[in-house]
């Protein structure tokens, strides 16, 4: 997995590419740390270029969601397609993460 954080005042966008799986949990925590330190008001996870997400990856989205709710910023997920979209649909997390 690779990522890039674009920031525009309080709006952040994390653009992911590659696979989001269990082995990515260290870099994912790094993202969450950067978001926490960056005074974000809203953040979008752009999954357009993500080919695959496993259940641990979904768990990381949930952690992000929890952090957003606690710190009072808004998290939304966009661009999911293929396997990623069907995983979000299968687990109904698409509703939970819709924003």
């Amino acid at each position: 997995m690779e990522y890039r954080i674009d920031k525009n005042n309080g709006d952040a966008k994390v653009v992911f590419s590659g696979d989001i799986t269990f082995s990515e949990n260290v870099s994912f925590r790094q993202i969450l740390k950067e978001l926490a330190e960056g005074n974000v008001e809203a953040c979008t996870f752009d999954l357009t270029d993500v080919g695959m997400v496993d259940s641990a990856g979904l768990g990381m989205f949930l952690i992000a969601k929890e952090q957003a709710d606690t710190a009072g910023w808004k998290l939304s997920v966009t661009g999911a397609q293929g396997h990623v979209a069907s995983m979000l649909k299968l687990t109904k997390l698409s509703d939970l993460l819709a924003g």
Binding site: L62, L90, T91, K92, L93
Partner: peptide, 26 residues
């Protein structure tokens, strides 16, 4: 949210809708 089970052996292979929020989230 488990992978969709598959029924086969009859006339047509089909999957079951197993979508749902995983256990222990909400």
């Amino acid at each position: 949210g488990a992978p969709r089970p598959i029924i086969f052996g009859g006339s047509k292979v089909r999957t079951l809708d197993s979508s749902g929020l995983p256990i222990a989230i909400v």
